[in-house]
Amino acid sequence: MTSHQFYLDELARLVQGELIGQSDLVLVGLSSLEQAQSQHISFVNGEKYLQEARASHAGALIVTATLKNQLNNHHNFIVVDNPYLAFAILTHHFEDKVLKRGIEATAQIADSAIIADNAYIGHYVVIGENCVVGEDTVIQSHVQLDNHVEIGKACFIDSHVTITGKAKIANRVRVHANTVIGGEGFGFAPYQGKWNRIVQLGSVQIGNDVRIGSNCSIDRGALDDTILKNGVIIDNLVQIAHNVVIGENTAIAAKCGIAGSTVIGKNCILAGGVGVVGHINIADNVTITGMSMVTKTISVAGSYSSGTGQFESNHWKRTVVRLRQLADVPLTKIVKQLDHMQAQIEHLESTLKSRK
């Protein structure tokens, strides 16, 4: 691990921003506006944060040109079009990285495995037959790679991850602690009151620049592969079942569950707690709001929701009672009542017009 310090002009070059102020100001970290001190740099992500920015003790601020003109009490700036993006770029330079390379003595590696010379293999890692670990990849302690698993270049595999099922992982992929990739999918054939296990013969294919959070399960395919395409990002505690395909740059938040053989398009967003049934398709550029249940194919881009919004508890209880009462009334009776009400309204309107 390393510590970092940068001159302000260095940081400006890293984000291709305009430096205003003291070019040789030394900064040792990023910080929020509230917690920043004189040796920190922070960012202002819109006018609603101006009051906090004026009160901040940050040594320098990342701002737009418009915001900079409203912060007369500060003197050191990096001016960019998108402060949040600039902040994201700088986090990579202040990050503590694992710089160690080589293979720890406690690791167990099959003779047929191919490990790049500049990879790092941590303590108690187990790597099976015919595995491949690419250049500059870091594999932390207690990871298990079963036979025929392949990991590309510049990946980070955190502690206690298991990768099995002949999974293939491309370049610059991050997999966080306790996740399982390539485990057996949930496939069973019912017959005469018993569940008959279906052996899962597919694999998992993960593209470039994918991020997978901790405690996730990504199951291998039954016959075809489970596929996560380039740029997919997945939060913690997500279940992805066998033969699911997820398109480029789709984001999936925590506690989502995606059932088998579903195809999700590119640039989609699944908010927290979304459930998706199996064997459906979701188009590109679809957003599913939190705790929704997706029960059928979505063919048109847009935002979709399901479920009932939040109520105060007593209001919720009254609403549930009314829903149950409504459910007990036959639909034909409701339609007749509405027709009767419409007829009465039309009669009243006619009577009022005749009196005029």
Results as ranks from 00 to 15, higher is better:
R220A: 05
L223T: 14
D224T: 04
T226Q: 11
K229Q: 15
K229T: 11
I234L: 15
I234C: 12
D235P: 08
L237A: 11
V238G: 06
Q239T: 08
A241E: 10
A241T: 06
A241Q: 07
N243R: 12
N243T: 03
V244T: 03
V244G: 02
I246P: 00
I246N: 06
E248I: 04
E248H: 10
T250Y: 03
A253M: 11
A253R: 01
A254E: 07
A254G: 15
A254T: 14
K255I: 08
K255N: 15
C256G: 10
A259D: 06
A259C: 09
A259Y: 00
G260F: 04
G260D: 05
G260A: 11
V263P: 00
N267T: 08
N267L: 03
I269S: 05
I269N: 08
I269V: 15
A271G: 08
A271E: 05
G272N: 04
G275P: 02
V277L: 07
V277D: 01
V277A: 02
H279K: 01
I280D: 04
I280H: 00
N281T: 10
A283S: 12
D284M: 07
N285G: 04
V286M: 03
T287V: 08
G290A: 14
G290E: 05
S292W: 02
V294E: 00
V294I: 10
V294K: 02
T297R: 09
V300L: 08
Y304S: 06
S305M: 11
G307V: 07
Q310H: 07
F311I: 04
W316A: 11
V320N: 10
Q325V: 07
Q325F: 09
Q325P: 05
L326Y: 15
A327F: 09
A327W: 12
K333D: 10
I334G: 02
I334Y: 06
I334C: 04
K336P: 01
K336R: 11
H340Y: 10
M341G: 00
Q342L: 11
Q344S: 08
Q344E: 14
I345W: 11
H347M: 11
L348D: 00
E349K: 12
S350W: 06
